[in-house]
Design a protein around this nucleic acid. Structure first.
Lengths: 218, 218
DNA sequence: GTCTATAGGTGGATAGAC
DNA sequence: GTCTATCCACCTATAGAC
């Protein structure tokens, strides 16, 4: 029986993704990545020009397809309400499937002067963001959503909840009085259902048309 | 006329705060901080034990009094609705007054394994968070807020909006189609007013005062 | 392709003059 | 208190053997 050896290029990218997310760009060393990937650190320079090229590659691999997936999830819905719910709950699934994404994205935002991946992010994200705005505008035209809301602000309020929850994930247990353990995936989904309901209630023009609220509490 | 020389200890803390927020802990060097503060880098070791002690000092200086101010702002209000509005709009003022706070806080969250200031943050923030939860519970008991909402989740949704907006501030201009310029303070306040209204609409038991309570199950 | 060895530079921290 | 000079560890990146 032989153990299948993973392609070194992929092992390097995997290790780099993990470490950059955990420790940041400056806090991660080439030797650490090599060690974690099970290869000699000099090999990284065979596959990538330098540390920053590797970092950019990590980000593009992670982000590409993300915005596309987000839009696809919204497209399936029949009306704006359903689309909002699909969007918010989809956020949770996408972030669960890419555990390092929120940290890396936020580091990029916060390090914006470094801007290792300026273009990559803004290109992909701006598209998704304006799709959410259009969705809210459509709901407003249909009389389902309140027209007093500025669509772009409402889009931000809607998106913020899940992102914030994932960011704060390590601290959430402490805040919610459940000890230092990191909340399990099911808690993240439960919050996603709450967040969708919260946004829909805030958007709703008429209370009775608000989608059912799932508190997540059995 | 003599120019008042700032106390070097304060200059060092100011420069460190700026640089740690911009570049992160690992990305900032002692020599950079010294240079930015206008003193020799060796002097940092006269005032602070080491780099990490300096970092902790920066965080405590920034955070101390923050939770207290948050609670004070809420206490002035007469009912839960007013308190929520005071809280959210107060968030904006507090973050405007401490421009480096959001970045530093999020870095801490994201670097939680490093946890330079674990205690400092969780102690201060957990208190504020549970005050928000109590506020929402009070509104629910008074029949003003929907009881289907899990108070802790609702607190997170309420708080998330402004924090996210500040974090994304450098990218907000691009997302909102207003070019690369960083949004002015007035835009931040405008969003604060929106966010308070968004949260209140989501929390409200009967938006029209006369409307029956939505059971959430059509 | 993958490794060893190492160059060249920089970072945190200290010793000690003034 | 504040500076100069410097040590040592470690980091990125390259040269070159296999």
């Amino acid at each position: 029986m032989t153990i299948t050896m993973p392609a070194p290029r992929e092992s390097i990218l995997d290790a780099a993704e993990r470490l950059f997310a955990r420790q940041g760009y400056a806090g991660t060393t080439i030797k650490q990545i090599g060690g974690d990937a099970g290869v000699n650190s000099a090999l990284l320079y065979y596959y990538f020009a330098d540390k920053e090229a590797l970092y950019r590659e990590v980000l593009t691999r992670l982000i590409s397809g993300l915005a596309a997936e987000g839009k696809r999830r919204m497209r399936g819905a029949r009306d704006p309400r359903e689309a909002i719910r699909a969007l918010v709950e989809g956020q949770v699934e996408m972030l669960l499937a890419r555990p390092h994404l929120p940290k890396l994205l936020v580091r990029e935002l916060v390090d914006h002067q470094a801007m290792h991946a300026q273009g990559i992010i803004t290109e992909h994200m701006a598209g998704l963001f304006s799709a959410v705005c259009d969705l809210i505008r459509a709901g407003q035209r249909a009389g389902i959503f309140r027209t007093e809301l500025e669509p772009r602000y409402a889009a931000i309020s809607t998106i913020a909840q899940v992102v914030y929850f994932f960011l704060a994930r390590p601290a959430i247990g402490l805040l919610m009085g459940q000890g230092p353990a990191v909340p399990p995936d099911e808690t993240m989904r439960e919050f996603g259902r709450h967040a969708a309901g919260f946004a829909l209630a805030a958007l709703a023009a008429h209370p009775n048309e608000a989608a059912p609220i799932d508190t997540g509490n059995p």
